[in-house]
């Protein structure tokens, strides 16, 4: 645990940040969660790690392609918000969709699904063990409903978009109550700050 994280947790315990960082529309998760790390299967069927994002900021969402409502609407809002970003920032941001339903979401299915939203979106999935490890790391979970007679079933999953910065540090959680404009504002603020830091460095 790095000293900054300890200090942040201490501040949390004192209730200083109990109400969150009001200046974001989403919720700041800086210091609350560990940095990006995973081993999953890409759309190509290959096993990949967080290095697949090549040091770019990532907006990541957990779902499943048979999801009737929340996943498509959330991903559509994310894509619409990303399109509103000014040119250099738009190129920077990587979008990722992690399916927690590997039984139905093979590489082909995932690739068709993510391509329908944006060519900047990568689809990932994995074995139950890999997915459990990854979701648990971000204190989220998922579960399956009993299969219906037609073979369909519902899946519970996280409803938030997790945003990681270029160094893989968790920064923001965009809740599903946010609109396109709010998501765009948060992403622009975070990414332009990142870009400034990169220039200064």
């Amino acid at each position: 645990m790095n000293p900054r994280r300890i200090a942040l947790i201490a501040a949390l315990l004192l209730g200083l940040t109990a109400c969150g960082d009001e200046s974001w529309h989403g919720k700041s998760i800086e210091g609350l969660m560990p940095e990006l790390e995973f081993e999953l299967t890409a759309e190509s069927g290959e096993t990949v790690t967080e290095s697949v994002f090549a040091g770019r900021p990532v907006a990541l969402y957990f779902g499943f392609t048979h999801c009737p409502d929340i996943c498509p609407t959330t991903l559509a809002r994310l894509v619409a918000a990303a399109r509103r970003l000014p040119e250099p920032l738009r190129e920077e941001l990587q979008l990722a969709f992690v399916s927690v339903d590997p039984q139905r979401d093979g590489p082909r299915q995932l690739s068709d699904y993510t391509d329908a939203f944006s060519d900047r979106m990568v689809g990932l999935t994995g074995s139950q063990r890999q997915l459990k490890a990854f979701t648990r790391r971000y204190r989220t979970t998922y579960g399956y409903e009993e299969e219906r007679s037609d073979g369909s079933y519902n899946v519970s999953h996280s409803s938030a978009i997790f945003v990681f910065d270029a160094s893989g540090e968790p920064r923001l959680m965009l809740l599903d109550s946010l609109g396109v404009a709010e998501i765009a504002a948060d992403l622009e603020r975070l990414l332009s700050r990142e870009a400034r830091n990169a220039d200064n460095a």
Partner: peptide, 9 residues
């Protein structure tokens, strides 16, 4: 909802 439920409810 943010973290996902143990099963769909």
């Amino acid at each position: 909802a943010v973290c996902g439920r143990a099963w769909p409810l």
